[in-house]
Design a protein around this nucleic acid. Sequence first.
DNA 1: ATAGATTTTAAACATTTGTTTAAAAAAACT
DNA 2: AGTTTTTTTAAACAAATGTTTAAAATCTAT
Lengths: 212, 212
Amino acid sequence: MKNSMTCSPFKSTEEKIREAAKRVFLEKGFDGATSRDIADAAGINIALTNYYFRSKEKLFMSIFEEMFQLFFNGIAEIMNKPIGFREKIAELIDHDFELLKKNPSLAIFVMNEIHRNPDRMATSIEVLKKVHHSQFEAQLQQEIERGAVRPITAMHLMPLIFCNIQFLFMGKAMHMKMWQVDEVGFDAFANKHKELVKDLVLTYLYEYEKVT
Amino acid sequence: MKNSMTCSPFKSTEEKIREAAKRVFLEKGFDGATSRDIADAAGINIALTNYYFRSKEKLFMSIFEEMFQLFFNGIAEIMNKPIGFREKIAELIDHDFELLKKNPSLAIFVMNEIHRNPDRMATSIEVLKKVHHSQFEAQLQQEIERGAVRPITAMHLMPLIFCNIQFLFMGKAMHMKMWQVDEVGFDAFANKHKELVKDLVLTYLYEYEKVT
DNA sequence: ATAGATTTTAAACATTTGTTTAAAAAAACT
DNA sequence: AGTTTTTTTAAACAAATGTTTAAAATCTAT
């Protein structure tokens, strides 16, 4: 139970397993990944996965919860930042984009595992509530009341902000096939699309027929 | 090799297997579904799945291709309809919504299986090209040239149209948990959100500062 | 250095997996 | 009727799966 949170090049066995499991689970999902896949990716004996994590399910939940936090924690933090609403939305989109650029399978992984077994969210509700009860909703209400932003609920606005970016990476393979572009072509498209989405959302929110 | 396309209440064994496989694969994915799951769901002996479809992989591909067609064929048809561009976009959104309302797991299923194994798309490229080479792109270009629609490529516009609806159903479980609503509450939200998305896309496209 | 605890290993375990076999049942045909 | 073909069944198959065991290796402390 030592050396569990360092960044030294000498990783503990537990860390090696976690990192391998992260890679394998993200790529293949819970059902598609085997204990031996993970042991091989970590370069360790199979028995060690159960020695450190008791079972495949426990190891998976450990990874899933980390990914779920990664998915929502950054969002919750930005939502509570003391910055303007317009800038906040732009930053949320930029952040989501960078996060998924670094972890292209994150969105489809989280969505799929939740879809297959919604109970897996049970242990991670707090971070969802953190998003729900952030400054974001109150700030939106203020913007609406002063007539700057078109009337809309946070429940409707949040999906508009995130779905475009997440769909971009979930549908990456399909996009490349459909438009016959390679990795480089997709990256160029993705960057342009991100800016387009920012423009789309902000234009829709801020430029509307004010009825006073 | 008879009775393969009737709607009679007496289904052939092959049909029973297909329908069961459709349900099980959509619910659990390829990796999560077992041959015995499908046989049980169909109420038939295990050996029959291989008697009619040779292997689990072949049975899966048969179902996957059908779902992939279902996913894109309706879209391609609407894109080639001789109607106005504005109405076309509205109809595309309505159609996607109704399709996913009937098959809530369709979007996550197709996206996930493609993500896990992009080669599965290989046999279904034609329908992708059908979408690509539809009337939609030319019509968009006309609208842009006459100054009615903001300059944008079809490659950027199509995701805007579909991602919102598809994300809605892919994230259904998460939405219900986050906003503490039940099935009924979600349906009400979904209906409102669909109209919002139509308004969002059409407003963005048609109401902009024309520079002549 | 030695004893004790911890970590790692190879091997085995019982299930489950996709698939096949060979016989039985049903259907189709003469 | 009887014969042949098609469909269905129960049983078995090898391979793969998650997990455990018991011994070996390594580390920790006296």
